[in-house]
Design a protein around this nucleic acid. Structure first.
Lengths: 342, 342
DNA sequence: CAGACAAATGGTAGCGCTACCATGCGAGGC
DNA sequence: GCCTCGCATGGTAGCGCTACCATTTGTCTG
């Protein structure tokens, strides 16, 4: 009467096929694959043989539907091309490559609204964990995170009040350290140059300002920023602007290394001696900082490790062993180089 | 008798809840959401109201299971941090951000085996389309692609025999163009410097060699390569090696811009005049090439467009209008700059 | 005005898997 | 020797959605 419908799925083997071939119940196959310890040695071998012979691969969608939990890590970053986040994402991928978890990346384009939208979208999938950049979520986004029903790791910053877990470092301290280094090297008219002033950049600026204030050297005209996305070209242009505004500038803390590189090139072009006339400090310490001529002092951040650590913490929480330390500060390192060796 | 089990899903509204609230059948809700044209104006409005009120978001897993097709684009790239692929991926994301499709990225780490593994994994999800970098799949990987049962777009290259569709440009021509440009500028002892010689790099090298052969100037000692991943630091080191091997070198075609930047910095450091003593050509034309001092000649490639175009072609195929042109050559552009202006 | 046909809507039966609740069986306690 | 308990295994009933087919209604043809 109810003729079995022609298989929608196009004939890929199902768990029932494996069960039949191995002469066991479907549920036992399911268990053998997910909790091998609960199935006897014998059956396990038999089932594995059937799996191999049929080329069975579990359907993650059916699995997610039945268990109300998808084996997916949702990752939210503000940019895919910014090397900083690319490194973080690489760390996440590498840490998860041997696990059953898939990764779903969302690009928020530095927009709170976009973040909210993506969070709602991710929520509909019941992910196993969420990793999101930053701690400045909108109230609505924060609520989504709190109600996600899965471990949540915020990354890239430190702070007192994470939704769940937090891995990163202090951008304020990074900015202050950079400025203090320039001050100690004897620079006085130290500018801040920054593009796309996201919350992390703002904190670096605040750190810079704290150091300058402490030295009694702060002057608002020392600050040159723009909402435009960062690039080497932009670094050059902003440096020109800064110099036009304040011709006696003798140092710059650049919000990131792209900007720093642009500044360095402009110095070459305008025959400004680095580090004699101008000291330069970058942020993040990309590979090229140590090779450039002169090499550029920069604040090294541990981006790849932030990714791997975030995954480790999430995996622990999923396994039921939430890390005792919910807030991890990976710090940073000032790499002193020729660009500030006056 | 069969007491309804306590909802596994934690009480999120389902399509049945929406249907009840709107006073229609579940199927009509499903249709209203996926094919609005097939539902009357009235019901559509009613259903939309219920959806909004309940905050209903369809469960993609259930959807995928029922329709045997996930709204997922599988994307396979060899690297996440390489700016080239980051740009491609960004293009893909931007093109898909307003569509219902999710994106699943796989990182093959330039490994054919890893590619095979990921392809099998992706296959188990029945993706809506696959976008994969390169045309040099292993036989097994190629078979997976052919049997994927969805549109497949290979990217980054041109060629005669794609699995399905292809968007990219000729690396051979790019390499030849770069070398010919150096020759025309009067350089003679032109080296090739390359890291991580993947198939695309090999083709650029072949193009370089073709130009050098045609000029009767090829010498195997002009070639310096390494399997190590590319970086600015490495560019500097390889350039030193090249110079040690062949002190009369008067030009270099760098396999990519990172290498070119490393070469430039080493020239600064060693007081080698660019472009007088050495001409430099890079590949990809990253932003910094036009800002460096001197600015560096490079072969501009259309990475972002490759991503957007690949998506456009896949979407068309999904919609049942496969593009008449299955192979798209987006070309490249030689950007002549100071580094070769002798 | 009967018949044909398209458009709008709904019911039923799964998609492939796992949660939950048996069931059977041997080991151990009294 | 009976009962309890834990372990290995299995059956049943969904998870939330859509494919497929049926039904209803309104419109057009001749």
């Amino acid at each position: 009467m109810t003729r079995p419908r022609s298989r929608r799925g196009g004939g890929r083997p199902t768990i029932a096929d494996v069960a039949r071939k191995a002469g066991v119940g479907a549920i036992t196959v399911s268990r053998a694959l997910r909790e091998p310890g609960r199935v006897s040695e014998d059956l396990r071998r038999q089932i594995q043989a059937a799996v191999d012979e049929l080329g069975y691969v579990p359907d993650p969608n059916a699995r997610a539907l039945a268990s109300a939990r998808a084996e997916v890590f949702g990752v939210l970053v503000p940019s895919l091309t910014n090397n900083v986040f690319a490194e973080v994402v690489r760390g996440i991928y590498d840490s998860l490559s041997d696990s059953p978890f898939r990764i779903q990346i969302g690009n928020t384009h530095y927009s709170g609204l976009e973040e909210e939208r993506l969070l709602q979208l991710f929520g509909s999938q019941r992910p196993a964990a969420l990793i999101v950049a930053g701690i400045d979520q909108t109230p609505s986004a924060r609520r989504s995170l709190e109600n996600a029903g899965c471990p949540v790791v915020q990354i890239m910053e430190t702070g007192a009040d994470p939704v769940d877990m937090l891995v990163g470092f202090s951008h304020f301290d990074g900015g202050r350290t950079a400025a203090e280094h320039l001050l100690q090297a004897g620079y006085r008219k130290i500018g801040f140059i920054g593009a796309r002033m996201d919350p992390r950049s703002q904190r670096r600026l605040a750190g810079y300002r704290a150091a300058m204030d402490a030295a009694g050297l702060f002057d608002p005209r020392l600050i040159t920023t723009t909402p435009v996305p960062s690039s080497v070209t932009l670094g050059r242009e902003l440096f020109r602007d800064a110099l036009a505004k304040m011709p006696t500038l003798d140092g710059v803390f650049c919000n990131n290394d792209d900007i720093a590189l642009g500044v360095l090139f402009e110095c070459h072009r305008a025959s400004i001696d680095v580090p004699k006339q101008i000291g330069i400090v970058g942020f993040n310490d990309l590979d090229m900082m140590q090779v450039s001529f002169p090499s550029i002092t920069s604040v090294r951040t541990h981006r790849y490790e932030i990714g791997t650590r975030a995954v480790a913490m999430a995996l622990a929480a999923i396994a039921g062993n939430p890390p005792r330390q919910r807030i991890v500060d990976l710090g940073f390192e000032l790499m002193r180089r020729e660009s500030t060796a006056r």
